[in-house]
Nucleic acid binder design. Structure first.
Lengths: 354, 354
DNA sequence: CTGAAAGCGCTTACAG
DNA sequence: CTGAAAGCGCTTACAG
């Protein structure tokens, strides 16, 4: 079939550069990759011609000969309508993306309905050499993805943990520390009955948080329970209602993310409880939403972008090692090291009533 | 260099399949692609072996021989902290992604700081054959991306418009219709002084909305102005303050998105204005946030996912046509056609005071 | 210091 | 109906 050049200028290949420079394709490749074995003037001439022609390597060709895709995969097994209201994922993706693109690695993103679909995506990516490795988020207490990537030999890093991570590297968020900071803040204000509206119990990080929550309460001699939700605002509202109706009414409620906190806030106010006079409210995830809502929400702030960047950096290193040719330029992560989590105290927390 | 098999099972190639089936690689390729010129039993045998071996095409190899990347690009030139609170983009991306992945096309996503960086990304993607086409969002009133993609011959589709789209296909949102619905709702309630806190004036869709806003007001014999912002909550708060302080105080304020509406709501309440008794508030973008905030916000709801899917579908078609080999299976868009925009009336709108 | 050649895994006209 | 071969654009040992 005749090659249709299509519109626009033709994109040059090393063959073009070689011809213009009067050398072989191999020499061009050597010059462009900084390999030794080329006289300095020749190298300079080749590079100048490539530069002038606007040459860039064809990724498919490079991927084929290097047996590397030059891409990492991230499949998100949460429905889009949930992702749309959670500022956590955009921040995480942004951090991952910044780190990868600094290393010329692309990010393949796919949104899927559930973990089954995610595993299908992982298998397909790997079978098609679309990716060199993957990032796994939302680790489950029983997680079928871990044995799958291990069996495939697919380099993978867990963004989160600890949990059933097998031999995979994992990067815990600051769950324990953040929960502790919140409980200590509330206890310092005088609260002794602190409940929590949590994320899905099936998530390893929810389990970690719940353990930290119990321990922090026990250490302070305070009481409280955690109700799991599926992260929807409906579930958050229902859980809040349940906490208020069953009694004893908590003097403070912690929500695992900001949008659930806002939903809970509305329910509390409609139940005739003033925030923070009757009930204090804290969000485990900070966002602009926490700032603009009234009363503004006390929230745990942490560096989600650095969290994603760190995991992405580890994945790139893992891929390099697995391929048996570590790259020369192993820079430190492109993003500054993660700052420590801090509790941003706003208007929604105060002393308990009475 | 010796090929390091690495951990995990070896991924089969057509050479393996050919060997097991006792045929040539060409025959395997024919069988797998459904090309004619193969006996039915042979085809079946080959397919069964490929299936059993878990064969999947190596995308790099296919891309190289087909001169196609099998991917589309989307670069978002908004800072991550803004993206993180805007439910529009997750929905849009989800719609694009659903449409593309139904066609086995990958989505390359990159977040960049500004349009300059976006153009650099586009050039690089195209030069490296990383993508077959791109989606352009947030069309500017003067948009430097349009001449660039036209000059490159890079297939592109504008998600939005109309505006300076040159010869590129574009897909307007329902801006005019949505603004009209909002103004008509408010006018019906009796409002005659309606102001608007808008997005950046440099965006073509902001211009479209502002024109529609003026026309709708004029048609109803109502008054009102639009103040532009950079979509930050700070700017929304400042604009709201300005509207309240300069007078005449509007009896209704329209915000170009939900998070700005929530920020404005706080400012209005702190200025001693009750919503909706003194001022009605409407958001041009609906989200769960509008539901959970108190008072809940009247908002314009439209099918952003279908919007993204439609544009993605057009891009795939454009790429097929540009390559000179339209694909056989030109299904209709994978997502159902977009529903008409509707105004979801909640607690934040009511008759004007007096 | 440089060139010719093989190979990465596919696709596809072209012979048999 | 099937096979052998060239080509996509690179990389990289191997000869000269």
């Amino acid at each position: 079939m005749p090659r249709r050049p299509g519109p626009g200028p033709r994109r040059p290949t090393i063959a073009d550069i070689a011809e213009r420079a009067g050398v072989s394709k191999g020499s061009v490749s050597y010059a462009l990759n900084g390999n030794p074995g080329l006289s300095e003037p020749t190298r300079r001439r080749i590079l100048a011609i490539a530069e002038e022609a606007g040459w860039r390597p064809n990724r498919a060709a490079r991927a084929l000969s290097a047996s590397r895709a030059g891409a990492c995969g991230l499949a998100l097994a949460r429905p889009a309508h949930l992702l749309a209201y959670d500022p956590f994922f955009p921040k995480l993706i942004s951090g991952i993306e910044a780190e990868l693109s600094a290393r010329q690695v692309a990010l393949m993103l796919q949104m899927v309905d559930d973990v089954e679909a995610e595993m299908r995506a992982l298998r397909r990516w790997w079978a098609e050499r679309r990716v060199d490795g993957v990032l796994l988020v939302d680790l489950r207490v029983v997680d079928p993805r871990v044995p799958v990537v291990e069996q495939l030999g697919l380099p993978a890093v867990i963004v989160g943990g600890p949990g059933p991570t097998g031999k995979l590297p994992y990067f815990p968020g600051h769950d324990t520390q953040r929960i502790r900071q919140i409980v200590e803040h509330l206890v310092r204000l005088g609260h002794r009955r602190i409940d929590r509206v949590a994320g899905p119990a099936a998530f390893a990080h929810t389990q970690t948080r719940t353990r930290a929550f119990r321990e922090a309460l026990a250490r302070a001699g305070a009481m409280g329970t955690a109700l799991s939700t599926d992260y929807t605002t409906q579930a958050a509202a229902a859980a809040t209602k349940k906490l208020v109706e069953r009694g004893p009414v908590p003097t403070a409620v912690v929500y695992d993310n900001d949008i659930m906190a806002v939903a809970g806030l509305g329910v509390l106010q409609e139940a005739g409880l003033a925030v923070p006079e009757d009930v204090s409210v804290v969000s485990l995830e900070d966002s602009i939403l926490c700032e603009v809502v009234r009363p503004s929400l006390t929230a745990s702030s942490w560096d989600v972008e650095a969290f994603g960047a760190t995991a992405a950096h580890a994945l790139v290193k893992l891929i390099d090692e697995a391929s048996g040719r570590p790259r020369v330029n192993d820079f430190t992560p492109g993003v500054a090291g993660p700052a420590e989590p801090t509790l941003v105290v706003r208007a929604s927390t105060g002393p308990p009533p009475g």
